[in-house]
Nucleic acid binder design. Structure first.
Lengths: 104, 104
DNA sequence: ATTTCATATGAAAATATCTTCATATCACCT
DNA sequence: AGGTGATATGAAGATATTTTCATATGAAAT
C-alpha cells in the first residue's frame, strides 16, 4: 500500500517531468486535439507526440475519444487544474524570482 | 511568463520523479531529520542523500535549519500535503487497480 | 480489397539523470 | 590552530529516458 503510493507518485511525477508532455497538457487545457494537430502546434514529429501521449493517457492525465479516424485527446481537468494551481502558488510563494529555482 | 511556468513545472516535477527523493519526503513527513539519519533509515550513502536533498531544497519542497553542526531538514507541508492528496485522489479514482498504471 | 489519412509501435542512437567515490567545507570544541 | 563529527561537492562511470526513423495498425471511403 505505502509502497504502492510511492511507486504511483514516481510514475505520475516522471510522466509530468517532460517538456513535451507539459506542452501537450498546456495545449489540451485550451481545447481537445488530435495527435496531428498537437504535432503541428508543437512543431514536432507525430510519432514523438504519440509516444509522449501514451504515458499521459496511461496515468489518466488525459482522455481519448475516437471520432472517425481521428483520436481526440482532452485534459483531465479535475486532476490537472488543482495540480497546476498548487505548483503555481508554490512557485509564487517560495521561488519569487524564478531564477533562483531555475538555475543549477 | 507562460514559458516560465512550463519550465518551473518541469523542474518541480522532475525533482519529484525520483524514488530516493520521494523516500526522503515521506520520512520528513513524519519528522524532521538530518542527512545522516535519512541515509541510515533509507540505507543509502550519505553523499547520495545529500545530492538528492539539494534539488528538493532548491525547489522549496523542504526547509533546512542549522542546529549545531547538524542541518535539520523538514517538509514544506503547506505545498506537499495537498500535492500528495491530489495524487492519492487521482490514483484512487483513475487507477483503481494500480497494476493498470504501473505496468508498461 | 485497395487506397488514403490518422495514429501507434519497435528498436537503435542520442541525451539526460543517478550513483559512487574521493575529497572539500563547515561548525564546534579543546 | 588543530581535531572531529556532520555535511556538501565534483567528476566519472553506470542507468534511464527521449528522440528519431522506418514501419505497422486502424478506420473509413471508393
Amino acid at each position: 500500500m505505502k509502497q504502492n503510493l510511492s511507486e504511483t507518485c514516481h510514475l505520475f511525477f516522471s510522466t509530468l517531468s517532460n517538456p513535451t508532455r507539459l506542452g501537450i497538457l498546456e495545449l489540451l487545457k485550451e481545447t481537445p486535439m488530435n495527435v496531428t494537430q498537437l504535432a503541428e502546434v508543437l512543431n514536432q514529429e507525430q510519432s514523438m507526440i504519440s509516444h509522449n501521449l501514451r504515458p499521459l493517457f496511461r496515468c489518466g492525465f488525459i482522455f481519448a475519444e475516437r471520432k472517425g479516424k481521428e483520436r481526440i485527446y482532452s485534459l483531465n481537468i479535475e486532476t490537472m487544474e488543482p495540480l497546476f494551481k498548487i505548483i503555481e502558488n508554490h512557485a509564487e510563494k517560495y521561488c519569487p524570482k524564478m531564477g533562483k529555482c531555475l538555475k543549477h
